[in-house]
């Protein structure tokens, strides 16, 4: 699977960087990503600056609030709004988390779906319905988590593979989340990666996190990417081929230059594993 018009290395757009980027976008940034929930129905100066950027650059929408695994009915009215947003800004891809964030009310955080066969069917049906309403394929991301339901009777890798298969959707691979979960749950991230459905990967995330303890990482997106996560990204490229990849940074934001250096590092790894596809050298 691949997404037309999307390749290279991108940066997650934060409001803090909006005005510097409005002046000039560093050439290292091939595309941006936003959480649509942060920009839906935002007008004024922010809204205008955002619109200017989406008119000039490629954007991916990475949703937070759809609650694909949530126990309340799928919010179809929200999806209709989402479709308008995706169309208005020419978003080249929409991805969501394999998690849930609400019941009848929103909690604005992502919680792990119990890994059970019933949940596989349930979530896959909701993904299919989402693709129907949005009239486009979506990709779903492996989430980080800190606990699992004691009723879970599948492991995470089998759960992810089964959902993607049954929904027949794209896979948004977050290598930082693989690393975070491997520490929090004591498994081998390379082995986990090997079990991922590589042919479904359309998009990759890399990010930093906060180490709380020997066996607990909090997925804050608040630090620079660490070497083991870079190694995991390379490993994913080696196994599955190079895919468009984005640097996420949501907290503890440094100056743009520092983030651009990390984006450039993504591009270096992409060249290493697929030199012929490096379009900007042509």
């Amino acid at each position: 699977m691949n997404t037309p018009c999307l390749d290279g290395a991108g940066l997650g757009l934060r409001r803090e960087h909006l005005f510097p980027l409005e002046a000039a976008v560093p050439p290292a940034i091939d595309f941006f990503e936003v959480s649509p929930e942060n920009w839906l129905a935002v007008g004024g100066r922010l809204g205008r600056a955002f619109r200017t950027l989406t008119e000039r650059h490629r954007f991916v929408a990475h949703g937070l609030a759809l609650s694909l695994g949530g126990p309340a009915p799928l919010d179809e009215a929200f999806l209709v709004r989402m479709k308008r947003f995706l169309d208005l800004h020419g978003m080249v891809l929409y991805t969501e988390h394999l998690s849930y964030c609400s019941d009848e009310g929103h909690l604005y955080d992502l919680f792990p779906i119990p890994f059970t066969p019933e949940a596989v069917n349930y979530v896959a049906a909701r993904i299919r319905r989402t693709q129907e309403i949005l009239e486009r394929p979506i990709a779903v991301e492996n989430s980080s988590y800190y606990l699992q339901s004691p009723d879970a009777d599948m492991d995470e890798a089998s759960f992810i593979a089964a959902v993607l298969d049954e929904a027949d959707c794209g896979f948004h691979l977050d290598v930082n989340n693989v690393y975070v979960n491997s520490v929090n749950y004591g498994y081998d991230p390379e082995d986990f990666l090997r079990r991922m459905p590589g042919q479904r990967i359309v998009y990759v995330h890399v990010a930093g996190h906060d180490r709380e303890d020997d066996d607990l990482i909090i997925d804050t997106h608040g630090q620079a990417v660490i070497d083991p996560v870079w190694a995991l990204l390379e490993s994913a490229y080696r196994r599955f081929g190079v895919r468009p990849t984005l640097l996420e940074r949501d907290f503890n934001l440094p100056l743009l230059d520092e983030l651009v250096r990390e984006v450039e590092h993504i591009a270096r790894l992409q060249r290493r594993w697929q030199p012929s596809a490096w379009k900007r050298s042509a």
């Binding site: 126990p71 849930y100 019941d103 909690l107 119990p114 349930y122 339901s149 004691p150």
Partner: peptide, 26 residues
Amino acid sequence: LPFQLFQRAFLASLRDPHRSRAPDGV
């Protein structure tokens, strides 16, 4: 569905720990 009972109990405990205990095994 069974997994949804866990989800609801878990969210209820997060919102109001004094009224709703975390589900067993968490």
